[in-house]
Design a protein around this nucleic acid. Structure first.
Lengths: 230, 230
DNA sequence: ATATCTTTATAAAATCTTTATACTTTCGCC
DNA sequence: GGCGAAAGTATAAAGATTTTATAAAGATAT
């Protein structure tokens, strides 16, 4: 459910970057760093982070300028980290497009909470992850499976097996590979499991499960889900 | 500014409300006021403000509770205004759904800038006080629930569980997710709580609770509230 | 004092694994 | 090509395990 979040830290002080890297990585984020504005924007383009932590006092150009440049092409949440604590600085940063403003020194716990708040609120609307092949469609946002508009009930194992097939429709998947993906490495030789579950998928999706057209056997190799017409 | 923005202030101190009203109206906002949590939620439903300023120290119930109640049906931006300035208070407010947190006393200019920052990404989407799915309807203005026009009495836990389901009707919600949302993160593994409460909801809403049609079990994963016909 | 929440116990259901057996494909050999 | 053995596959169903449902007792809170 949780996609790994990337954070870009733009700050010239190595100590601050180190502190942030440790704290953020402890909380499960991946951290990219930049020590000036120019490189910051470069990193933003390269890594498309989920959020940016930006210092105002940068060696090459003022953080506000960097912020405005960012806002010319990106709506990524930006939290300002700065020693400047005057009302004027805070207001102009927020009005230049910052989402939040925290003055140094800051509590790492509060920073993390503000990051969570920003991520929660500014999440880009994600396209509905629906995989379709012929009459079969898998909707990952609702974790539901349909066959000709009819909801099909699947067990967890059946679901992850179908998922694997539909994401690799048209390709031959070897027994070993399927078993490793669905059951885990230690089960790579339990080919019989796979036969049982293939039979179940066929029962649920094939018109005539004695003549499978969707989940095709590749004898001695594995199985293939046919690429179906729409 | 094209559309006039409404702001709801929930604070028991008349001086603060007066100060805010003047400052906000000077900047072109319309201001609604509420002096306790109950009225605050009422006003939120009545006036559908663009943003809410919420004090934590309210006479009738803690601001955090009010915030959680708001988040049960609305994504309106909420900025906390509070004298409580401990890291712990700030973190728990932000993690309960607040968008920002400002400690009193505050600079009106900074507050206005933070309001602008919060409003910038807010897509005005109306907060409907009544959620409906099939015969079941939840009215947040009165916190009452009806099944086929008949009032159903629910405990607070049952209410927020039902709320979560009705807001996500059709989706499979995992045990962990439900527990985190309703009971809080530390309870993510208390799956048995959930079973007990699902049984209670079924007893209150299903025609035949031995054959649940509304709150469906997805074994090994979680539960799903069926999208019902009207 | 009562309603609600948490915990425990146990039965029932669903799912996964294993077994048994029949069927199909592959391939060497004539 | 046709035959037969070996290897590979399909499926039902039994057995084992995991997950779920529910009542009810104990604890806590209002």
């Amino acid at each position: 459910m949780s996609i790994p979040k990337n954070i870009l830290v733009i700050d010239d002080e190595i100590q601050i970057r180190r502190l942030l890297k440790i704290g953020l990585e402890d909380s499960g984020y991946s951290v990219f760093e930049a020590e000036d504005g120019k490189r910051g924007i470069q990193e933003l383009i390269n890594h498309k982070p989920s959020i940016v932590l930006l210092d105002l006092g940068l060696p090459d150009e003022d953080g506000l300028i960097v912020l405005k440049k960012i806002r010319e092409f990106s709506d990524v949440p930006v939290i300002i980290l700065s020693v400047r604590n005057s009302e004027k600085d805070i207001i102009s940063a927020l009005d230049s497009g910052a989402n939040d403003y925290i003055t140094k020194p800051f509590n790492i716990g509060e920073l993390l909470a503000r990051i969570r708040a920003s991520l929660r609120y500014y999440q880009p609307e994600q396209t509905n992850p629906v995989f379709t092949n012929g009459n079969i469609s898998v909707d990952f946002s609702t974790r539901t499976v349909k066959n000709k508009a009819e909801l099909v009930k699947l067990t967890t194992t059946e679901f992850s097996l179908l998922t694997l097939f539909i994401r690799n429709a048209g390709k031959v998947l070897t027994h070993q590979y399927i078993l490793k993906e669905v059951w885990g490495k230690p089960f790579s030789d339990e080919t019989q499991y796979l036969r049982v579950y293939i039979a179940q998928l066929r029962k649920k999706f094939e018109d005539d499960s004695t003549k499978p057209k969707i989940f095709v056997t590749e004898s001695g190799v594995g199985y293939r889900m046919t690429l179906l017409e729409y």
